[in-house]
Amino acid sequence: MIGKIKKFNFKSLLILNTFTLIVTSYFFKNFFLIGVFTLFFFISLLTTRNGLVIIRKLNILQNIRTEGPTSHYKKNDTPTMGGVFMIIPFLIFLLIITINLSSLKLFLLLLTIFSFFIIGVLDDYLSIKNRENRGLKTKEKFFLQSIISIIFILLVYEKNLINPLITVSDSWGINMNFFILPISFLVLVGMSNSVNLTDGLDGLAAGCSGIIFCGLGTEILMKEQQELFIFSILCYSMSGICLGFLKYNCYPAKIFMGDTGSLSIGAILGSIALLTDSVFTLSIFSGIFIVESLSVIIQVCFFKITKRLFHNGKRIFLMAPLHHHFELKGVKEDKIVETFWKINILLVILGIVLKINL
């Protein structure tokens, strides 16, 4: 059915997500789920629309990389740091829940997401201040992400808040023992950077994130563990936030989320997956993010190896991440985004089906 839709745009994605949540709410006999999604969708619409006015007044505008596709030059001076208006409502919601439930899990989740949010804000601020698309250096950003991730992982491991058993299904899992620590680090830092790398086309990261959060919220519900219900609510709220922002971020974008949004979204996905034992499912849901990240790793490694062997670096892709490769092949930006959305929907369906049948 998806393949027959000639134009799968923002409205199509919103209708699909809303319908999915209505069915989910009916199945689990809890219409609070669709209520949370709807509430945060409209909150995001409101904060992004008003945020656009503030950003324009403050002259917080995007500087496009000169080494990127030439078609992106027209995006120069597009308002950026829109992630502020996505993540702050979520952090306030999470803070209220944490105070009311007095949950250590939620408290550590709040501190971790807030810390990644600050890294993103700092990175975007320096980029705007320097008037080029370069904020924190790669090593500096990775160092800060690593420190935060290590603290979070060690605390949840010490308090037995993370399961060393990576669950594939209700009857099958892989006990990682101590190796759950490096795997957790890879999930948290890797997911944060993967979303960041994917955020290179209008609506790509926001749309995929909205789809993944919806799928992750449903997968957590399927565990039928009362103590995890709140994480499902958090996922649905983020799905609404991402789609509300997407209204202004889809092609042609009126605003970009910046690292403030992308680094935080990746951290939310990674940390919730770790705390709810959903790492395996997230790895399927986030296939687009993972492939985008792998395309960069493969490109860099292949270039360095061939340069060392032949004194002339070669490339596998025309440009990385992968979405830029398709751009340079002549595929229109909105078509690439539309196709990636459809693939992400299929990945979420695949993950849910595997969860049911394995």
Rank of each mutant, 00 (worst) to 15 (best):
I230M: 07
L309G: 09
G173Q: 02
G210W: 08
Y157M: 01
S146A: 12
K141G: 02
I148K: 05
T78R: 04
L309R: 14
S146P: 01
Y248Q: 01
Q62I: 06
V353I: 14
F19I: 09
S239E: 00
I166T: 09
L243P: 07
I5E: 09
S71M: 12
Y26V: 07
S12M: 13
G190I: 05
L13S: 03
I148P: 02
V353Y: 14
R56P: 00
I349K: 01
C214V: 10
H325A: 13
I233D: 01
V195I: 15
V296F: 03
K74D: 08
S44A: 15
M319Y: 10
L106I: 09
K139E: 13
I113S: 01
G244T: 05
V36G: 03
D259R: 00
F229V: 10
L318M: 14
F28G: 00
S293Q: 07
K57G: 11
L204P: 06
G330I: 10
E227A: 10
F85Q: 00
K332L: 15
F256T: 04
F31K: 06
F107M: 14
I92W: 02
M191S: 14
G217S: 08
N133Q: 09
L294S: 06
S149H: 08
L21R: 10
G270N: 10
K29G: 01
S25G: 07
L197N: 05
F185C: 04
F85C: 02
L186V: 11
V337C: 04
L33I: 15
K105H: 14
P182D: 04
I268V: 15
L110D: 12
S264K: 03
S283C: 14
F37K: 01
N76R: 08
L58I: 12
L186T: 12
Y157R: 13
Q62C: 14
I241K: 02
L165E: 13
C235T: 02
F289Q: 04
G351E: 01
I233A: 00
L354M: 13
A267V: 06
I113D: 01
I183A: 12
I97S: 10
N100Y: 03
L94C: 13
G351A: 08
E333P: 10
F310G: 06
L263R: 04
I284Q: 09
I64S: 05
L234M: 11
F256A: 00
I64R: 04
L110W: 11
A205F: 03
F93A: 15
G217K: 03
V296T: 15
E132Q: 14
L221E: 07
S271M: 05
M319W: 06
V189T: 15
L246D: 03
I60C: 02
L91Y: 06
S171A: 12
T306G: 13
D123H: 05
L165Y: 10
N344F: 07
L39Y: 06
S194V: 11
I153K: 08
N175T: 09
M86W: 04
I99K: 11
V331H: 10
I356M: 12
G244R: 05
E67N: 13
I352R: 04
P69M: 02
V23Y: 02
T167N: 15
S102C: 06
S209E: 01
I43S: 02
Y157A: 14
N196P: 00
S278M: 13
S115C: 03
F289V: 00
